[in-house]
Structures are given as C-alpha cells and as structure tokens.
Amino acid sequence: MSITVQSISKSFGTAPALHDVTFEVPAGSLMALLGPSGGGKSTILRIIAGLEEPDSGTIAIDGEEVTHLPARTRGIGFCFQHYAPFRHMTVWENVAFGLKVRHRPKAEIAERVSELLELVRLDGFSRRYPAQLSGGQRQRMALARALAVQPRVLLLDEPFGALDAQVRKELRTWLRELHERVQVTTVLVTHDQEEAMEVADRIAVVRDGRLEQVGTPAECYDHPASEFVLTFLGPATRLDGSWVRPHDLVVTREALPGSHRGRIERIVRLGFEVRLEVLLEDGTDTWVQLARRSYDALGAEVGDEVHVHVGVGRRTWPVGEETDPQGQSLVGVPPAP
C-alpha cells in the first residue's frame, strides 16, 4: 500500500512547522524521515497517521484520500517514541487490544496474538506487565501491537531513540528482517543517519519543515541535493575551498601534481579506521579517513609532512554555493524514482 504525501503544510500557532512537503512511499518499501530534532519529521508522521491535521495538502494511502479520516479508520499501525504501552494490561492484552476492539472471535485473537508474540520473540512474556520488560522488549511489544490489526502502513516514531547503543544495533537488523517478512509499507522517523542508511530503502531528509531531498541512501550520500544533506548524511571535510568526503582523500609522502602540503596534527585510531587531522599550508584544517592497512603503508607520525589530494574520480562540492562542479544546481534536484 503506497503512501502519497501531497503539498502538506502545517503551523503550530504562529510557528510554521511544515512547508509544502511532497513525497511518495512506494508500496512495501521502508522509508526513513531523517533530520535534526525539531525539524518536523514527527509532525509529518503524525499527519500521515491522522493524529494531527495538516493546514493544507492531502494524504493518500493506497490511492485513497484519507486527509480528514480519523486515525482509527485509516488502517495504520503506529509506534510511539516511548512505545505508549498500556500499563495496566499484560503483554498479551496489549497485543490483543486492537483485535478486541474490532470484536474478532476469541479463537482468532488467541491465534494471532501468539503468532505475533513469536514473531517479535516475546513468547513466554505474554503474562508480564510492560513495567516488567526491558526497553527493547517494550519496543517489540509495541511493534506486535501495531502489527496485530494488519495495518496497511506501519509508522514508527524514533523507534530506537530511547534504547542504548548495543540494543539499538540489534533491533535495527531485526527490524529490517521483520520488514522483509511482513512486507508492510513502513515509514520511520530518525535523527540518526547511520540508522536511516542501514534500514531504509529510501530516505527523505527533512530540515526546518522542508524536504531537502528524497532518494535511496546511496543517491543521497553520493549526490546530495544541498550542503546540508552532504554534511548531515556523512562525514565531510574541506580541501581547496571544496567539500569532500574524508575517505575520498589520498595522503602521500611525496608531492604530486595538484596535491596540498600539510602537517599531521593528530592521529585517531578507531580499530579498522584511522583518522589523520592535517593542517594544510593555506591554513585549512582537514581530516582524512584511512583504512588501517593504508595507514600502516603510509607509516606517518604526528608532526610529519604529508601531501593530500582528492582521489581519482571522487567528487567534491563547492563550499557555501549550492551548485556542483558540473554547473548543475544542487538545490531542487528532483527526487530520484
């Protein structure tokens, strides 16, 4: 079931929250709304769900306009950032809630609930209360509860935001697997670019209530539509007045045509990755991301003189101006299909 968001605008009081947001989520795909907090991503999600009404624009699910339908008739599953578990109900009752209010037969409810609890690996916890679960377990219970009613679309607000790093990574992989199995159109909100790139088929980058870019993770990373997307989606550093990805820089001992001389200020070893902070002759602070092997081959120490250039075929983007070297405008690049 596809979702079509068409020219949505919304303001809270006098503060505008969303300006003319338009995008589409293809049926069965997983889309991430990515951006800094307070940028309006959650508002978009709540408007799709029917928990907020837009000032203008329309929402369609599977081609059917739902803009003015109440949330309960839209056929959505929604997971809140803090899961919103029903505290006075057991895990089993939480998951069964949506089916009970739909007056499904008891046998069907029992079957569906145990099936879902197995899917989210909570079988054996069915008689516990939410207060007796860990954060990750509560998150999975909320997912099972949302999936129980067989929603047309699944909406997740910062699904891993309140979890610690280790559990987060596990759940990310698990969510991706779950999505492959359940195949329900999913939109998730996150401020973590790594999470968005790992989980989502497509990313919509949102800032200050505007859509900056929509595309696959690779498109957004390699062809950012704006300086903001470039710097938000991955590491970026400067060389010769341009933005460049630090892993696209090459460091050599000898001067090469087009290279810049500098001195190593600091070396940070992060296991596989090594970061060299280099002060260039023209006063620019830049940094280079190297694989451990390349660093060992270079054999440089702090204080050594090195030469830095952009790798063959690697892209750079001008700083401050929103046009790319090919003369193509960076802003307003149409979202890739």
């Binding site: 309960r72 919103a84 505290r87 209010v101 509860r145």
Partner: peptide
Amino acid sequence: DEQEQAAETLGAGALT
C-alpha cells in the same frame, strides 16, 4: 495522552 492516541490508532473509538 500517548496511550489514548495509541488506542485510537488501534481502532478504538472515544468511548472505548
């Protein structure tokens, strides 16, 4: 009001 909103998204009316 998150629990109430959650109930709404699950199909419950105001009275339920």
